[in-house]
């Protein structure tokens, strides 16, 4: 099996996540789709690490995980705050500055 298969799978998952971010209206689900994209990127990094025979890719994936954790914490706090302000988690409702 060629290592490129892992990259194909990661590309597929990344695409699904990106489409989800554009399609879904619920802010929490949009966030989950972003997580899916980050995970897909991690899979490529790990596969590349094995491909090249050194561990730098795994270190990169590790940093991506840490940043994703920080992002989830702040993002979910923002969602909770938005929900308190307007009693809805839909991204369509946050349109105060629309003309």
């Amino acid at each position: 099996m060629s290592p490129i298969n892992y990259v194909y799978l990661a590309a597929l998952l990344f695409t699904i996540g990106a489409a989800g971010v554009l399609i879904r209206r619920n802010a929490i689900v949009v966030f989950m789709c972003i997580e899916l994209m980050l995970n897909a990127a991690n899979l490529t990094l790990v596969a590349f690490s094995r491909m090249h025979g050194n561990l730098d890719g795994q270190i990169m994936a590790f940093f991506v995980m840490v940043v994703a954790a920080a992002e989830v914490v702040v993002g979910l706090a923002i969602i909770v705050m938005l929900y308190r302000a307007r009693h809805s988690a839909s991204v369509d409702d946050a349109s105060l500055m629309k003309l």
Binding site: V7, Y8, L12, T15, I16, A19, M51
Partner: peptide, 22 residues
Amino acid sequence: CGLGLGTLLIVGIGQVSVGGFN
């Protein structure tokens, strides 16, 4: 847009030649 991105990525990866795992 998602479909477009998907095809772009898949075709792009298809152009690459990689060896096996080290």
